[in-house]
Design a binder for these strands. Structure first.
Length: 361
DNA sequence: AGGCTTTGACCTGCA
DNA sequence: ATGCAGGTCAAAGCC
């Protein structure tokens, strides 16, 4: 009802409807069809048409740069963050899906614990041939962009930019997570040895079918307040898809994610961008502290950049690290700073939306 | 009392 | 033109 029917341009061409391809596709997909019509789309001009599904590292860019990105390193080691991927534990990377699930579960239940372990085994892999080859793997970079399937994928659908605000990149599509072959980030792992990475790769292929429950992000942990307005079991996905709207007055940002029975998020899609400040903990306690920071970063980044795609690609290129880096940076800067993450863990437990919602799941 | 989740039904777009 | 799938709405219930 709301603003529905303000169809704007969702040119099919823009969106790939394939879920398979990558996070982006995913994003597109989600926003694309039926839904798309209903959302306020950003002006065509803003649409980033050229976003590539997977992240490819530009020739000029060296994987090393990624390594340097604060996000990866610090994240991995320090605090586990879904966004950064530090959450992924070796278990899930190396082990079978089950293990992964377990680890993720642990995350949810006790975020703190994980971190160390996770970090140790944490590994990112690049899917693109170039990247993987280039040594991302070796470098241990983790680029969240274009990841998909196995891990939680976070997308931001720019197309839905409900916020006219220039700064709001409505159409940013950010994919975080691991995709089949996409990126795996390694941190320590890299250093440690190729084994893990190897294992990961192998597993990655396997992962395709097995859904990792990587706690990509808690629903409301991004710092914004979300209200669930629907849930549906989508055909392609094994898990039900949950639809959330930002509760901020005029904010129409939507978040769609799929969560495995265990409570882990397997796929996340953001539609639109918040052109309002985060409610911050004030509203909801610590609730969103964790993710919020990260996402916040994204938003800011996006907005500041003013470029949609930038998130995905440019970010990476420029910063040398995908959106994560900025996030990371922000995190630190954000009031909590590094500690925040830790706090996050705690918060997560308490406010963790997952937990809250656990009742049904 | 307010806000959020749940859930079935409805609507829209696409093949 | 029809059916399917995805997304959204809205009432009811819960916290």
């Amino acid at each position: 009802m709301e603003d529905s029917h303000s169809h704007s341009q969702h040119s099919p061409s823009d969106n790939a409807t394939t879920h398979v391809t990558s996070a982006q596709d995913h994003v597109t997909d989600a926003g694309g069809s039926a839904n798309g019509a209903r959302y306020r789309l950003m002006s065509p001009a803003k649409l980033p048409i050229s976003r590539s599904t997977c992240i490819s590292i530009p020739p000029g860019l060296s994987p090393t740069s990624f390594l340097e990105s604060p996000v990866l390193l610090s994240n991995i080691k320090a605090e586990p963050s879904p966004t950064t991927g530090s959450f992924f534990t070796r278990q899930w990377m190396q082990g079978s899906g089950e293990n992964a699930a377990l680890s993720s579960e642990k995350f949810f239940s006790g975020g703190n614990i994980i971190d160390e372990k996770a970090s140790s085994s944490f590994e990112f892999r690049f899917q693109t041939g170039a990247s993987s080859t280039s040594g991302l793997s070796s470098a241990g970079l983790s680029i969240p962009v274009g990841l998909n399937r196995n891990g939680p994928v976070i997308h931001q659908d720019q197309r839905y930019s409900q916020s006219p605000a220039p700064s709001s990149l409505a159409s940013q599509s950010v994919a975080v997570g691991l995709q089949d072959s996409s990126i795996c980030s390694t941190t320590d792992e890299l250093n440690q040895g190729g084994n893990s990475s190897t294992g990961i790769q192998a597993s990655s292929s396997e992962h395709k079918d097995s859904i990792f429950s990587v706690p990509a992000e808690r629903t409301s942990d991004d710092g914004f307040n979300w209200r669930k307005y629907g849930q549906k079991l989508v055909k392609g996905s094994e898990f039900p898809r949950s639809y959330y709207k930002c509760t901020y007055p005029n904010c129409e940002v939507k978040k769609i994610f799929e969560r495995s029975p265990s409570g882990q998020i397997t796929d996340i899609v953001y539609k639109g961008s918040h052109d309002h400040p985060k409610p911050q903990a004030a509203r909801r306690h610590n609730t969103g502290a964790l993710l919020s920071i990260q996402e916040d970063k994204l938003d800011k980044d996006l907005s500041s950049t003013g470029q949609e795609d930038k998130l995905n690609i440019n970010n990476m290129e420029q910063t040398g690290s995908p959106m994560f880096s900025p996030l990371r940076a922000n995190e630190d800067s954000i009031d909590g700073s590094g500690s925040q993450f830790q706090g996050i863990n705690d918060d997560v437990e308490e406010d963790d939306p997952f937990q809250k919602r656990r009742y049904k799941f």
